[in-house]
Amino acid sequence: MATIGIDGIRKSFGAVQALQAVELLVRDGEFLALLGPSGCGKTTLLRIIAGLETQTAGRVRIGERDVTDLPPRRRGLAMVFQNYAVFPHLTVFENVAFGLRMGKAPKDRVQRQVERAAALLHIEPYLGRYPAQLSGGQRQRVAVARALAVEPEVLLMDEPLSNLDALLRLEMRAELKAVLAEAGTTTIYVTHDQTEAMGLADRIAVMQAGRIEQIGSPAEIYHRPGSRFVGAFVGSPPMNFLRLPVRNGAAALGDLSLPCPPGTAAEVLLGLRAEDLSPAPPGEGFAFTLRVAEPLGSHVLLTGSAANQPMRAVVPYEAEGVGEGFAPGRVLHLRPHPGRLNWMDAESGRALEASR
């Protein structure tokens, strides 16, 4: 296996800066997700690592080797794309064996590696079939098996599950996590789907406008976002942000006085996850005016406003003080979990360091 080092990678397309001095270190055997909206530069970065795109500046390292100027075939990596990219005229066995045969591997190694990869992906019964005889999920398993069969130092995956339906995507996500954990291959996974990134990755690098906004574990990214962008992009519903006045070192929210980090300006952004709010008696929380209630089985998603700003809250269906009275215009009282407050600069949107 190998580490991956990205040192000051820049990429320009004419006047457009697609990547701006990206620095990143992926650890040996780590599964790292590049997460961000369309156009943020995540696929461009992946293609530069693969050698399919040439950077404007910067270096790429795999293990101890500087691979910046090496062609893809000499970088010791494999790639799985969004489309299945399987050969329709070859059987599943020959598809999985393709990379090994191109590398002129001995027949016994080809047989051994194909069987091992097929067992990992549970496609042994289909080795004699052609891709047209497989479902979409089975074809994607073939593509992953082909990549793993060559035992690459690095596996690069570009939104490999996006063409599958929701139920199959859920199944494949669980399978993929188990397979890659067993294989121990250093993996970079590009996605715009936060659920995939949160469920699969050891760490997530959230990208925006050609830069990495934040790198951290899924829990860190979710509970302690480094900026308003990260908090709004990761999570469903997105994190709530309330712009609040600060007096004597505390932010005023209804009947609550919430201590702010030292040196906070006269106005601050308070970030709150919807599930970190709970019903409270009047006088012990802040007023929330309900606009829409969406029962979702075990809980209810409430959409409304607080401090004249939009807000969402998730509460248990039988929460005390809520009941089944979800008439629009109803005023509830909520209070935040004290350990889940995220303070951010009102101007830059960056997390205040003292709150992290």
Results as ranks from 00 to 15, higher is better:
G199Q: 04
I188G: 04
T185Q: 03
S236T: 14
R247L: 13
L156A: 05
F241S: 13
A166H: 00
S217C: 08
G199S: 14
M198T: 06
P125V: 09
A149D: 00
M172Y: 00
V190Y: 05
A232M: 13
M207D: 09
G249V: 13
I221P: 01
E171W: 03
F233D: 05
Q208T: 07
A219D: 11
Y126Q: 15
F229P: 09
G210R: 08
I188F: 07
I215F: 07
L168S: 03
L164M: 08
L134Q: 00
F229K: 11
S162I: 12
L161G: 07
G254I: 12
A143Y: 05
S217L: 09
D255V: 01
L176T: 01
M239C: 14
L148N: 04
P131E: 04
I212T: 05
P160N: 02
F229E: 11
V150I: 15
M172N: 02
P218Q: 09
H223Y: 08
G226W: 11
G249P: 12
Y126N: 10
S227A: 07
G235F: 12
P245H: 10
Q194H: 11
P245I: 12
V230L: 08
Q208N: 15
E220P: 11
Y189C: 02
G128C: 06
G210H: 07
P160K: 02
I221M: 05
N240Y: 04
R211D: 02
F241D: 13
S257E: 15
I188C: 10
R146I: 06
G254W: 14
R129Q: 15
G137Y: 07
I215G: 10
T191R: 08
V230I: 08
M198E: 06
G216D: 07
R146F: 05
G184K: 01
E175F: 02
R228M: 10
T185W: 01
R141W: 07
L180T: 01
T186G: 04
A201F: 02
G254Y: 14
L170S: 11
Y222V: 10
E159T: 04
D158H: 11
G254K: 13
V230T: 11
E153Y: 00
A209L: 13
V206P: 01
D165I: 11
R203A: 13
D193F: 05
L168P: 03
L161D: 05
V144M: 10
A252N: 12
M198C: 08
A219E: 13
T186P: 03
R203C: 14
L148S: 09
A145Y: 09
P131M: 04
R129H: 15
V246K: 12
P259I: 01
R173Y: 01
A251M: 14
